[in-house]
């Protein structure tokens, strides 16, 4: 198994709050990987360490075989959980910005995705609905030819049609695949069938992980598992 992210005894605190405790995981590459768990379970904190936006208090982390940081991030497309960057752009403007500044940004792929996700390229970003903006943000990530795509809560606050389009775009991305896609979500929605592997987080720990099909055979659906976890069960 090739590994895209390796954590060894990783700890992270913010003031008195413990975000991650003793995380030791190997996240497999060339898969769609779900990082699942309730709000505040440490998913975004883990992603921020992967991007090198925060440093662990102790422990080791490597991403694509290197220490996370600015000199590694050209290989990663990241959708943060709170992102509003392109306010005074049109969609075309955002794509131009992508071509100028984002390594591996493929404008023809972006246009193709925009047509397919029904995003009008003349549209201004500050006039978009939340669902349209979320689709644009996702296009900015999926149009990049980079080995790792990291999507933090891409489905939250988005209406069902937009969510379905996002999932369809992800399915296509896997069909073409050379990439690893990490997706965090606290609600599974229609993404249930998308994951090759899943990591369940709770209270800053990884409580359960493995190939999605094996976990289904042992424990049932991902939705059921997340339900059990957020009610304090360990799911073992």
């Amino acid at each position: 198994m090739d590994v895209v992210v390796r954590c060894q005894d990783v700890k992270k605190t913010f003031g008195t709050r413990t975000a991650l405790q003793d995380i030791t995981v190997k996240i497999p590459s060339h898969q769609v990987v779900g990082i699942l768990g309730p709000n505040g379970s440490g998913k975004s904190s883990l992603f921020r360490l992967i991007l090198g936006l925060n440093q662990p208090d102790s422990g080791e982390i490597s991403v694509l075989g290197r220490k996370p940081g600015w000199n590694n991030n050209h290989q990663i497309a990241y959708l943060p959980d709170r992102a509003r960057w392109y306010g005074d752009h049109t969609v075309e403007g955002a794509f131009q910005w992508g071509m100028d500044l984002l390594p591996g940004f493929d404008a023809s792929k972006a246009n193709e995705l925009a047509d397919w996700m029904e995003i009008d390229k003349k549209m201004r970003v500050d006039g978009m609905s939340k669902g349209q903006e979320a689709r644009l943000m996702l296009i900015m990530c999926l149009a990049r030819n980079v080995p790792l795509i990291v999507l933090d809560e891409p489905f939250t606050g988005i209406d069902t049609p937009s969510r379905e389009r996002i999932i369809d775009a992800l399915i296509d991305r896997v069909t073409e695949r050379e990439q690893t896609i990490l997706i965090s979500t606290h609600e599974i929605y229609e993404a249930e069938g998308l994951f090759d592997s899943v990591f369940f987080m709770n209270e800053g720990r990884v409580e359960l992980s493995g190939p999605a099909e094996e976990l289904r055979a042992k424990h049932g659906s991902m939705v059921e598992l997340v339900g059990k976890m957020s009610h304090g069960g360990r799911g073992r």
Binding site: E164, D168, I171, V174, T175, G193, D196
Partner: peptide
């Protein structure tokens, strides 16, 4: 095709 079925069932094409 693999792609059509993956879209229809909303599941990973690898499956």
């Amino acid at each position: 095709s693999v792609r059509e079925l993956a879209h229809g069932l909303k599941i990973n094409p690898n499956t």
